[in-house]
Amino acid sequence: MRLTCPHCGARDRREFTYHGPASLLDRPAPDAGEAAWNAYLHLRDNPEGESRELWYHEPCRAWAVITRDTRTHAVHGSAAP
């Protein structure tokens, strides 16, 4: 499996660490309330198909938003957060 780092290009999957969906970038305000924080921390769209995910490229320490298909594992895009 290969993933794309926005800085280094296509690399072996072993260089990357998965973190979670890209929705984690939209962090609620501290006082957003229990429901908002619950949705942020726990609930997931978990899409079957195109998925935007946060990955860490260990060798260059860059975080990336990688667009990937969860049915085929095809990578469609990669960008800095």
Binding site: H19, R27, Y56, E58, R61, P81
Partner: peptide, 14 residues
């Protein structure tokens, strides 16, 4: 922790 701090810097405190 290093990964976490990189995450905080690049994703939360851009």
């Amino acid at each position: 922790v290093m990964r976490h701090m990189d995450y905080a810097r690049q994703c939360l405190a851009r």
